[in-house]
Computed example of a mutant assay.
Amino acid sequence: MSEDAELRRLRWRCRRGMRELDQLMLRYLDGRWPQASEAERADFLRLLDTEDDKLWRWFMGRERPGDDLLAHLVQRIIDLPH
């Protein structure tokens, strides 16, 4: 798959149905994905497989992911410049 096609597919997967989650995911995709390591990219893909309500609780700080790698990625996304 070409890189452009992959980015289009990922951009579609970042659409979560909640504007705030869309913005967080797209901020990562646009600002961090290009230089992310393969391991971090794999973590982001796992994050995209997470249910929206769980993502919302994680990003709002109401819960913490049980997986330390995902917890680190959630914090990294929160810390990205707006």
Rank of each mutant, 00 (worst) to 15 (best):
M1C: 01
D4H: 11
A5S: 10
L7C: 03
L7P: 01
R8Y: 03
R9H: 13
R9Q: 15
L10K: 12
R11W: 06
R11P: 00
R13A: 04
C14A: 07
C14P: 09
G17P: 03
R19N: 02
R19P: 00
E20S: 05
E20F: 03
E20D: 11
L21E: 12
L21T: 13
L21F: 09
L21H: 09
Q23A: 15
Q23D: 09
Q23Y: 04
L24Q: 10
M25E: 06
R27P: 00
L29G: 07
L29R: 11
D30L: 07
G31Q: 14
R32C: 05
W33R: 08
S37I: 04
S37L: 00
E40K: 05
E40M: 08
A42C: 08
D43H: 11
L45N: 05
D49A: 12
T50L: 02
T50V: 11
D53W: 02
K54H: 02
L55P: 00
R57I: 01
W58Y: 15
F59R: 03
F59Q: 04
F59V: 01
G61K: 01
R62D: 15
P65W: 12
G66P: 00
G66I: 00
D67A: 05
D68L: 12
L73R: 10
V74I: 13
Q75F: 10
